[in-house]
Design a protein around this nucleic acid. Structure first.
Lengths: 114, 114
DNA sequence: TTCACGTGTCATCTTTTTCTTACACGTGAA
DNA sequence: TTCACGTGTAAGAAAAAGATGACACGTGAA
């Protein structure tokens, strides 16, 4: 039972549930890369890539750090983390127990009269 | 390398990346259930639950079949499938190769002049 | 018939994601 | 200075997802 909490799991799954972000992780899996170069390889604009990178980093799937190149430019390099998610029905059932519910459970069940 | 295709993976992940749907899978993991009862237990309206169930079934994570109860009512019972997703950076990298791209790769890379 | 319970769908509204365009800043080289 | 390349962010349009309410249909029991 070392899995992530329900909320964290949802965030990780949501982060991976997108073609572009899947591609970002796939690209970074082979070698780390900096933002502009990554944008060119994947074929998306930098602002868009920036947004996707933030989502992936917030979910803990990648990490980025700013470095200075030889010619003095500030480059932000990203790389993947060693995430390892094993998804089965029982794993999901366990994580779901730690889900932060909006308010259900205390509120009255949705009325369904005619 | 028996994993799902990139598109299928995205669909499965998107299906699980939601608190309510996570709860549905968790509930069905212990015992199968029919729609109205499930809606009461989870605390959502039937139309909403119906939509989430469709998404989960489309992703292949649950299956439903219509049965007739003793008192002649048509009940739709759902249960979880034996899905087993192992998510690592390399697994993602492999699945990403079979992603159906909108059009990138052929289209001109996003211009970024000025 | 009317009620309670089961099924499903459609139209609509609200919220969130996704994406583009435009801007700002910094550095090294021509 | 101007250009090329790197960084980041903010505003707004477009698209998708989430959620609700009102329907319609069927059956058994009061």
């Amino acid at each position: 039972m070392g899995g992530p909490t329900g909320d964290d799991l949802v965030e990780m799954l949501a982060a991976l549930a997108n073609p572009i972000r899947l591609r970002i992780v796939a690209t970074l899996a082979s070698r780390r890369d900096y933002v502009s170069q990554l944008a060119r390889e994947i074929g998306v604009s930098r602002p868009l890539l920036h947004m996707h990178l933030r989502r992936l980093e917030a979910a803990g799937l990648i990490t980025g750090r700013l470095e200075l190149s030889d010619d003095g430019k500030a480059m932000k390099y990203y790389e993947v983390t060693d995430f390892d998610l094993h998804l089965t029905a029982s794993a999901v059932a366990e994580a779901a127990q730690t889900l932060t519910m909006p308010d259900s459970g205390k509120g009255p069940a949705p009325k369904e009269s005619t």
